[in-house]
């Protein structure tokens, strides 16, 4: 079922390596590289994801307010009431 290691692709000069557990670092350069990278990725996506959500908010806001307005009587009709 499916391909196994060794027959995935034709590759010359296969290099395998492993790292001693004593040399591993789980979070290398987390703040110095990771954080700027987070900012970069956020800036790359915000103008593609933001506008649809802004539209969603506008549609939601308009619909709610219009619904509330339609449930009210028109105050102008009662202007001369005691």
């Amino acid at each position: 079922m499916g391909k196994t290691f060794g027959q995935l692709a034709y590759i010359r000069h296969i290099i395998t390596f492993s790292l001693s557990p004593f040399e591993q670092r789980a979070f290398p350069n987390f703040f110095s590289n990771g954080f700027p990278n987070l900012v970069r990725r956020f800036r790359g996506q915000i103008f593609r994801i933001g506008p649809p959500f802004a539209l969603l908010y506008i549609a939601f806001d308009w619909t709610t307010k219009t619904h509330q307005a339609l449930l009210r009587k028109n105050p102008a009709d009662y202007i001369n009431d005691e």
């Binding site: 593609r48 994801i49 649809p52 939601f60 619909t63 619904h67 339609l70």
Partner: peptide, 27 residues
């Protein structure tokens, strides 16, 4: 395509919200 995808997601959320509202204008 990404913008379209997120538009689809937002429309899905809007549609779901509307489904929970009573059948009154402007819903």
């Amino acid at each position: 395509m990404q913008v379209t995808f997120w538009l689809m997601v937002c429309n899905f959320i809007f549609l779901s919200w509307l489904g929970a509202m009573p059948l009154e204008p402007p819903f």
